[in-house]
């Protein structure tokens, strides 16, 4: 009798430890792959691990990185935000318009408009009960049209001054954008893991009905999350404008899908309820490493970047789904 009990207990413990290992791979796998990929790239291309190059990778990835924070929140919530790419483009244009009125204006105007866009998206999704996919898809089209309408192809910031230094300066030898990105992810991780709001996001993504019954204010949390995503996309646009010294209506094109891809590579489940900020950051940086390596190869055109990113995303998703099934089994 007792032997049978201990045997069952041992089996249970084995299953539990296996589930824990699988969960660990799922949440931390991306960062392991990132380290391995970076080391491998460093072996093949001696210039790759040069601090300057690594800084360039993170700087180039910082705009997508900020967008991916908001996207990760939205995906954990169980939704999508396809409007972020266009919002980045519109953000660069708005920042270029506001730049003559000071740094604060150039930063805040895109963020405010992003907040407003997120609010409209959220209201349509929550109050009108429309599919997030459709609402944010329409926002993608509308914002892109608005950006081109305001700026045409591009709008040059005549005298970037302090605004330009904000993005292109450095602090203790580390680029400002790198600092901003890491800071933003640290804050986002706190928000996601240490606040009632973060807990509510997980709860809604896991089971919306249950969350509602437990007293989570589902509507508010959803709207707030789309607002967060829009605001961060606006911020990414402002910083990109500062980096480029101009507003580009085509900037951020494709960020909506790349940010989802980064989140998924980083272990955020599309079904909602599961994900980490560290994973999302790893996903963003992995995409950045792929881009950098393809540039290092030189003989390959930018077209191969799409091919490699797509193949990598597939590989990551196949591994993810295998792990999820392992966990469930």
């Amino acid at each position: 009798m007792s032997a049978a009990v201990t045997e069952a207990g041992a089996a249970e413990a084995r299953a539990e430890s296996r589930a824990r290992i699988v969960g660990l791979i799922q949440s931390r796998g991306a960062i392991a792959v990132l380290v391995v990929a970076a080391l491998a790239a460093g072996l093949v291309f001696p210039d790759f691990l040069h601090p300057g190059n690594l800084g360039d990778i993170v700087t180039a990835a910082s705009f997508l990185g900020l967008v991916a924070i908001g996207q990760t929140f939205v995906v954990i919530l169980g939704g999508f935000d396809l409007s972020v790419g266009s919002m980045v483009g519109l953000g660069t244009v708005l920042a270029a318009y506001a730049a003559p009125y000071g740094v604060l204006a150039a930063l805040l105007l895109p963020m405010l408009v992003g907040l407003l866009v997120g609010l409209i998206d959220g209201l349509l999704i929550v109050r009108a009960r429309m599919a997030p996919f459709i609402v944010t898809l329409a926002a993608l089209l509308a914002l892109k049209g608005l950006a081109v309408l305001l700026a045409g192809e591009s709008l040059v910031i005549a005298d970037p001054g302090l605004f330009g230094r904000l993005a292109n300066g450095s602090w203790l030898g580390i680029g400002n954008l790198v600092v901003i990105l890491l800071l933003a992810y640290a804050l986002a991780a706190l928000l996601l893991n240490r606040t009632r709001y973060g807990a509510a996001v997980f709860a809604i993504g896991g089971n919306e009905e249950a969350a509602r019954m437990l007293g989570v204010r589902v509507e508010r949390v959803k709207i707030a999350t789309y607002c967060l995503s829009g605001t961060l996309a606006g911020l990414a646009g402002a910083l990109l404008a500062a980096h480029l010294s101009s507003g580009l209506s085509s900037a951020g094109t494709g960020y909506e899908l790349q940010s989802i891809a980064a989140a998924v590579i980083g272990g955020v489940l599309l079904t909602g309820g599961v994900g980490t900020m560290l994973g999302a950051l790893s996903g963003v940086l992995l995409l950045g490493v792929i881009e950098n390596v393809i540039n290092q190869i030189g003989s390959l055109s930018a077209a191969y970047q799409g091919l490699a990113s797509g193949a990598f995303l597939l590989l990551a998703v196949i591994v993810q789904s295998g792990l999820t099934r392992q966990r469930a089994a």
Binding site: G306, L307, G310
Partner: peptide
Amino acid sequence: LALLVAARGL
């Protein structure tokens, strides 16, 4: 989505 990115790249 992966196919979208990869097929156009290819």
